[in-house]
Simulated scan of single mutants.
Amino acid sequence: MAADPATIEAMLREALAPSHLVVRDDSALHAGHAGAASGGGHYDVTIVSERFAGHTRVARHRMVYDALRGLFPTQIHALAVTAFTDQEFQSREPSSGSSCNSQT
Rank of each mutant, 00 (worst) to 15 (best):
M1T: 04
A2H: 15
A3D: 03
A3H: 01
A3E: 02
D4I: 06
D4Y: 00
P5M: 08
P5L: 06
P5C: 02
P5E: 08
A6W: 10
A6R: 14
T7P: 04
T7K: 09
I8N: 09
I8W: 08
A10S: 03
M11V: 10
M11N: 07
M11I: 07
L12S: 13
R13N: 09
E14V: 12
E14I: 10
E14Y: 05
A15W: 06
A15I: 12
L16M: 02
A17G: 08
A17C: 09
A17V: 11
P18D: 01
P18S: 05
P18G: 04
P18K: 08
S19M: 07
H20P: 15
L21I: 00
L21W: 00
L21Y: 01
V22E: 10
V23T: 04
V23R: 11
D25L: 07
D26K: 06
D26Q: 10
D26M: 08
S27C: 05
L29A: 15
H30C: 07
H30F: 10
G32T: 10
H33D: 09
A34F: 06
G35N: 02
G35H: 01
G35D: 05
G35R: 05
G35L: 02
A36N: 12
A37W: 11
S38E: 08
G41W: 09
G41N: 09
H42I: 00
H42C: 03
Y43P: 07
Y43H: 02
Y43S: 07
Y43F: 14
Y43R: 08
D44S: 15
D44H: 15
V45M: 00
T46R: 12
T46Q: 13
T46M: 15
I47H: 08
I47V: 11
I47D: 03
V48T: 05
S49M: 01
S49C: 00
E50S: 09
R51S: 07
A53R: 02
A53W: 04
G54R: 01
T56F: 01
T56E: 05
T56W: 01
R57G: 01
A59V: 03
A59Y: 00
R60N: 09
H61C: 11
R62T: 00
M63N: 01
M63L: 06
V64C: 06
V64R: 02
Y65W: 03
A67C: 03
A67E: 08
L68N: 07
L68P: 03
L68F: 00
L68G: 04
R69S: 15
R69Q: 15
R69H: 12
R69N: 15
G70A: 13
L71C: 06
F72H: 02
F72Q: 02
F72S: 04
P73Y: 06
P73A: 06
T74Q: 14
T74E: 15
T74D: 15
I76S: 03
I76Q: 01
A78T: 03
A78W: 00
L79I: 05
A80I: 11
V81E: 00
T82L: 12
A83T: 02
F84P: 02
F84D: 01
F84G: 03
F84H: 10
E88Q: 11
Q90D: 08
Q90T: 12
Q90N: 13
R92I: 07
R92V: 04
E93M: 06
E93L: 10
E93G: 09
P94Q: 10
S95H: 14
S95E: 13
S95V: 09
S96Y: 09
G97R: 05
G97I: 03
S98H: 14
S98T: 14
N101G: 10
N101Y: 01
S102V: 15
Q103E: 11
